[in-house]
């Protein structure tokens, strides 16, 4: 057996093991865009809250204590979520086609399942919090559950997703300790971190 042939065999095995178990068409660009949507969303919420409405009290600056969460805030958050998911699906499908990779295979199914379980649990938990009027834990919960979803999904895609998840969990815990800074931490987690990690993925893995 030729030495070069063995090298080729081993390289092909390594790449197959990687490609078959991980969804490597996740679009970094969609991460950047999701971060931009989140920052726009946070800005809209911030300026709405600063509108000095009597329903909630606002201390100037970022220290915004939300006693009452206006439903518009929830709709903006849901809007950001939907726009981000659609962008991610469209751009990842495009990237997979461009690279000749499978879009809907065992790897993407495992990725979706592992991201859905913590995300659905978190979504339901937040609905319960809203229903019971415990608003100060809405932002921390969203960051913590999203971070858990990323960590759980990270085995099925790029490894950097795990670190993004851990940082989101950390921000969520900080948000729980400092309820006044929820909006700022939301902007950091869903906005800045997405842009940073999206760029890393974009430049490291192309697209």
């Amino acid at each position: 057996m030729e030495e070069k042939q063995i090298h080729d065999d081993l390289a092909s095995i390594r790449s197959l093991m990687e490609r078959s178990s991980k969804f490597i068409s996740l679009s970094g660009l969609s991460g950047v865009l999701a971060g931009v949507y989140a920052l726009i969303g946070v800005c809209i919420i911030y300026f709405k809250l600063s509108g000095a409405n009597t329903a909630y009290s606002v201390i100037p600056g970022w220290h915004t204590i939300i006693y009452y969460l206006p439903s518009s805030t929830i709709w903006i958050a849901i809007g950001v979520l939907i726009a981000s998911v659609v962008t991610c699906v469209v751009l990842s499908t495009y990237k997979a086609k461009r690279k000749g990779q499978q879009v809907w295979g065992p790897a993407s199914k495992a990725l979706l399942f592992n991201i859905s379980v913590p995300l659905l649990a978190g979504g339901l938990f937040i609905i319960i919090l809203l229903g019971r009027g415990i608003f100060e834990f809405v932002i921390p919960s969203s960051l913590i559950f999203y971070g858990l979803a990323l960590v759980s999904a990270s085995n099925y895609t790029f490894g950097v997703v795990k670190y993004l998840g851990i940082l989101q969990i950390a921000l969520g815990l900080i948000a729980a300790l400092l309820p006044g800074y929820g909006l700022l931490l939301w902007a950091l987690g869903f906005g800045v971190l997405h842009i940073v990690y999206g760029s890393i993925m974009y430049f490291k893995y192309g697209g």
């Binding site: 065999d9 095995i13 197959l16 093991m17 078959s20 178990s21 499978q102 295979g105 065992p106």
Partner: peptide, 26 residues
């Protein structure tokens, strides 16, 4: 045979794999 080695590497890395995905991958 190289194909058999490739099949095996996919099945070692994954709990299970279906026929069509395997066909597409290889």
């Amino acid at each position: 045979n190289r194909v058999r080695l490739q099949i095996m590497s996919v099945l070692v890395a994954n709990e299970r794999y279906d026929f069509n995905s395997l066909k597409e991958l290889l």
